[in-house]
């Protein structure tokens, strides 16, 4: 807070947050996202094709282009603490159309992983982890679905872990290897008691 106008501290902080200062940017963050996402986020020229293609954008405040900009400038905290990070539906429309051949979806997924390392994650995502751990499905089958499947001449359960529960131990082994379930349980407990 080198530059000050002598306002009360809270107002100074608000003013500071409205501007972009060099020290806000962490070049290491840009490099890290580039390596982990295996795409080229630093090549973004901000044309907006991603947001224009995004099914989430017209229905929410999620702006994929803005996240790409934050990666270019290394705005780590701003990117990882923005709740909009979790509004991507991973439809890959942006990745299909990006004229710079970047995969913005993969950049978002990378930042979600980095955020999770700091325990920044909405609880509903963690509940999905719990569901997968229990059934092998993020959205497990239910009776409405089962009836619909029957009407279509399909088996009541799909040929997945629902039909072959004997594969569940292997799925749990993978999840446990990354301590995903343990972390999910811990965070859910912290937040919901």
């Amino acid at each position: 807070m080198a530059r000050t106008k002598g306002y009360p501290e809270a107002l100074e902080k608000k003013l500071h947050e409205q501007r972009f200062f060099r020290e806000d940017s962490n070049p290491e963050f840009s490099k890290k996202v580039k390596t982990l996402s295996r795409t080229i986020p630093h090549m973004c020229y901000q044309c907006g094709t991603c947001t224009g293609s995004c099914p989430s954008a017209p229905r929410s405040t999620y702006r994929i282009r803005k996240f790409m900009r934050r990666v270019v400038l290394g705005l780590e905290n701003e990117a990882l603490t923005d709740p909009d990070l979790w509004l991507c539906t991973t439809c890959y429309s942006c990745s299909d159309r990006c004229p710079r051949d970047i995969l913005p979806t993969d950049v978002i997924m990378t930042m979600r992983n980095l955020a999770f390392q700091r325990d920044i994650i909405p609880v509903n995502f963690l509940k999905t982890v719990t569901a997968i751990y229990a059934s092998g499905h993020g959205v497990p089958n239910n009776d409405v679905n089962r009836a619909a499947r029957e009407r279509l001449g399909l088996t009541r359960d799909p040929p997945t872990t629902h039909m072959y529960p004997e594969y569940m131990p292997a799925i749990r082994k993978i999840i446990d290897h990354y301590k995903l379930k343990a972390n999910a349980d811990r965070i859910i407990k912290e937040r919901e008691g």
Binding site: G48, T49, C50, T51, G52, A57, P58, R63, R65
Partner: peptide
């Protein structure tokens, strides 16, 4: 369909 990048609105 586009993004008005200056308005930050689709």
């Amino acid at each position: 369909m586009a993004d008005d990048t200056l308005l930050d609105r689709p």
